[in-house]
């Protein structure tokens, strides 16, 4: 069953045409890698699929609903309720501890402080990062940062996890660990995962690869 779909979407930044009519369909529970050389538009495709930005033409559907025509507030709600995001370098709030960073989405969702902290710690434990729960991001290694970031993305039990080069800043052993934990947790959750990467070994963790070249899907490789 198709959960997330882009139909002939186009997006330009000034004169640069980042996406030129991309169509992709992603099934529920699938783990998909979007690959392509740098500048191919793969990050832009992820931003459009996740409702962070809207394409100029074409349609984006999630769970049978068209989302590119929704207003910012509705898309924000959708991202909060159904999506989780992981980016390169963690992008954690530097002043908060690891546990508070993970609890943040729960707090924004209106949950209590203690309750959120308990859930956050449980997730840190699953990500093998409970030992750094009270450390600030500045004190963490790259691999620890990403594991905390993964915990933050999964803590709300999202339907889809979007990861943009989640292991880009890590060496291969640390990267593999992060990826393994992310995919394992996503499988347990039943979450769909969309990973943008230029690393073939990361792509090999996915069930399927979508190759983006010059802003177009160059053949969906099954």
């Amino acid at each position: 069953m198709t959960l997330l779909e882009a139909r002939r979407i186009e997006k330009a930044f000034g004169r640069t045409r980042a996406l030129r009519g991309v169509s992709v369909a992603i099934g529920s529970g699938e783990i998909v890698a979007i690959t392509g050389p740098s500048g191919s538009g793969k990050s832009t495709l992820l931003h459009c699929l996740s409702g962070i930005m809207c394409p100029e033409t074409g349609e984006v559907h999630y769970d049978g609903r068209r989302i590119d025509t929704l207003d910012e507030a509705a898309r924000t709600r959708l991202r909060r309720e159904a999506f989780g995001v992981v980016f390169q370098f963690g992008r954690l709030v530097p002043e908060l501890t690891a546990a508070e960073n993970v609890a943040l989405p729960l707090l924004f969702g209106g949950n209590g402080r203690e309750e959120s902290a308990t859930v956050a710690r449980a997730w840190l434990e699953r990500m093998d990062a409970l030992d750094v729960a009270d450390a600030r991001p500045g004190e963490l290694s790259g691999g620890q940062l990403q594991r905390v970031a993964v915990a933050r993305a999964l803590v709300t039990g999202p339907k889809v996890v979007f990861a943009d080069e989640p292991t880009g800043a890590l060496d291969s052993v640390a990267g593999e660990r992060v990826l393994g934990l992310l995919l394992e947790a996503a499988r347990v959750n039943g979450s769909t995962v969309v990973i943008v990467t230029h690393d073939n070994r990361v792509a090999a963790h996915a069930d399927r690869e979508i190759v983006v070249r010059d802003g177009a899907a160059a053949g969906v490789v099954v």
Binding site: I52, A73, R79, V85, R91, P105, F108
Partner: peptide, 18 residues
């Protein structure tokens, strides 16, 4: 300084008003 961090929170569904 916090632009990328706040942009990430926004991507995760934190509203501009918040």
């Amino acid at each position: 300084e916090h632009g990328p961090v706040l942009a990430t929170l926004r991507a995760a569904g934190v509203a501009d008003g918040e």
